[in-house]
Simulated assay, not measured.
Amino acid sequence: MYVAVKGGEKAIDSAHDWMAEERRGDPDVAELSVPQIREQLSLAVNRVMAEGSLYDPDLAALAIKQARGDMIEAIFLIRAYRTTLPRFGASLPVETTEMACDRRISATFKDVPGGQVLGPTFDYTHRLLDFALEAEGLEAPEREAGEAAHPRMPRVTEFLNQEGLIQTEPRPDVDTAPRDLTREPLELPAGRPLRLQALSRGDEGFVLSMAYSTQRGYAKNHPFVGELRIGTVPVEVEIPELGFAVEVGEVVLTECETVNQFTGSKLEPAQFTRGYGLVFGQSERKAISMALVDRALRWKELGEDDKGAPAQDEEFVLYHCDNIQATGFLEHIKLPHYVDFQSELELVRRLRRETEGRVQQEAAE
Results as ranks from 00 to 15, higher is better:
R103E: 11
R23M: 14
T96M: 04
P172M: 10
E315W: 10
T254Q: 08
P35T: 00
V156P: 02
V246C: 01
V293Q: 06
S106Q: 07
S209R: 15
K10I: 10
L138E: 04
H222L: 11
T83M: 06
E51H: 10
D13I: 06
R68P: 00
D123P: 00
A190T: 14
V248S: 01
P189C: 03
Q360L: 12
E314S: 04
I288F: 02
R82T: 07
V359E: 14
P189L: 06
K110V: 06
G357A: 15
V279A: 07
V156Y: 07
E136Q: 13
E158H: 09
K65W: 09
L133K: 10
V293M: 05
I75A: 05
A132I: 05
E98W: 01
G205S: 08
S42E: 10
F109W: 10
H222M: 12
D58M: 01
S106F: 14
G275S: 10
I230W: 00
I230G: 00
K220A: 14
V29Q: 07
L267N: 10
L85Q: 14
T254P: 07
G328F: 03
Q197N: 09
L292P: 00
E241W: 01
W18D: 15
L43I: 04
V279E: 09
F88T: 02
T108C: 09
T182E: 13
Y338H: 13
R171P: 00
R216A: 04
Q167M: 14
R195W: 03
R295L: 03
P178L: 09
R274G: 00
R358L: 11
R171L: 12
L133P: 02
P86H: 05
L85F: 03
E21C: 12
A219F: 07
E331C: 07
A15H: 10
D180P: 01
D173F: 09
E365H: 03
G119E: 05
R201E: 08
E247L: 02
E331W: 04
P27N: 09
E247H: 01
T121N: 06
G303N: 11
R143F: 12
D102F: 12
P310S: 07
E139I: 13
Q361T: 12
P269Y: 04
Y218T: 07
P57S: 05
G231F: 15
S106L: 08
E136R: 13
P57C: 03
A107G: 11
Q167G: 11
K266Y: 09
E39Y: 04
K220G: 04
E158D: 15
P269Q: 08
L292R: 15
D56V: 05
C101G: 01
P240L: 10
H150A: 14
G52N: 08
L267R: 11
V117K: 09
K307I: 02
H337R: 15
F206D: 01
I72K: 06
L318Y: 06
E158T: 15
L297C: 05
V317A: 01
E31P: 02
A326R: 09
K110S: 10
P151W: 02
H150F: 11
Q342H: 08
D58Y: 00
C256K: 12
R155G: 01
L228H: 03
G277I: 06
D56W: 02
D26E: 11
L43D: 12
E356Y: 11
T97L: 14
R298I: 00
Q116L: 13
